[in-house]
Simulated scan of single mutants.
Amino acid sequence: MRAPLLLLGLVGVLWFYATLPSIWLAAPVRDVTAQILSDDRFKSGTLSKLVAQIAVRPSLMVEPSDFVRGEALILLRTSEEMIGRKSPEDADRKVEAATDKVKYSLSVNPTDAFLWLMLYSTAISRDGLDFRNIKYLDQSYVIAPFEGWIVLRRNRVGLALFQSLSEATQQNVLTEFGAMINSGFIDDAAMNLEGVGWAERDRLLTTLERANEIPREAFARRLARDGVKAIVPGVEIDQRSWR
């Protein structure tokens, strides 16, 4: 009876030492992940210090899926910051390591729409516009076509290569644009329409037929202030009053 108890105790001790580092690192990783998702800026050295702490964790450390996701996003952010500041070889190695970590995180949680978007962004930063990588963006839309907090990054990306997307993904991009306005992201939607989405302006404006009246009028006023001549469905704006 004593031997099984000793074995159980040993397992308990090993489990404790395996989980302790993840508990210790969980809070800073979680906080930094939230800042990355909000596109916040970091003080110099903040991310590098955390990356160093993560790198020396025990090999047997238990890694919850949110920790794996956080590490992937942190490595992505640091690799992005190194582009242009390090040699191309060093930057490529960092991007490759970050990409591998993103793929590993997706193997743990394949329904993470944001990471699929980040995988696409990383792929084009490394390989250029390779149409084989569009599948990552497609997957992001398949998993979460109306994910509000992803919209601000993803819609701009989708519009930039709109003609290369499948018909289903094009429709998701258009619907996402209308959802941006309905959610009050007027300035971001205006920049998308006036910038990367200008070639598709007629189709984008058509999506506003189902938008609520107040944000639709706000969007029309914003376009008028910018001097953009565009017909927003159901809204009449005197262009002269905004010059």
Rank of each mutant, 00 (worst) to 15 (best):
R2C: 00
R2L: 05
A3N: 03
A3R: 04
L5K: 01
L5W: 02
L6W: 00
G9Y: 03
L14E: 09
Y17F: 15
L20D: 08
L25Y: 04
A27L: 06
A27C: 02
P28G: 02
P28A: 00
V29F: 04
D31H: 05
V32M: 03
Q35C: 04
I36T: 06
L37T: 12
D40M: 06
K43N: 14
G45P: 01
S48E: 15
R57G: 05
P58G: 01
S59V: 10
L60K: 06
S65W: 09
D66C: 00
F67P: 08
R69A: 04
R69N: 07
A72H: 00
L73C: 05
L75C: 04
R77D: 14
T78D: 08
I83Y: 06
I83Q: 12
G84D: 05
K86V: 11
S87F: 08
A91S: 15
E96Y: 09
E96D: 14
T99S: 12
K101H: 10
Y104C: 06
S105V: 05
N109C: 09
A113E: 15
F114E: 14
F114R: 14
L115Y: 01
W116A: 02
W116S: 01
M118Q: 14
L119R: 00
T122N: 14
D127P: 08
D130I: 05
F131K: 08
K135N: 05
S140F: 04
P145S: 03
P145M: 08
F146S: 15
E147L: 11
E147G: 08
E147F: 10
G148K: 11
G148E: 11
I150V: 09
R156Y: 09
A160R: 14
L161R: 02
Q163L: 07
S164P: 01
L165V: 00
S166Y: 02
S166R: 01
E167P: 03
Q170I: 04
V173G: 00
V173M: 01
T175E: 14
I181R: 00
I181H: 03
I181Q: 01
N182S: 15
G184T: 04
D188M: 10
E194N: 13
W198H: 09
A199E: 15
A199P: 08
E200M: 12
R201F: 02
R203C: 07
L205Y: 10
A211P: 06
N212F: 11
R221H: 11
R222G: 03
R222N: 11
R225V: 11
K229S: 13
P233A: 15
G234D: 06
D238C: 13
Q239V: 13
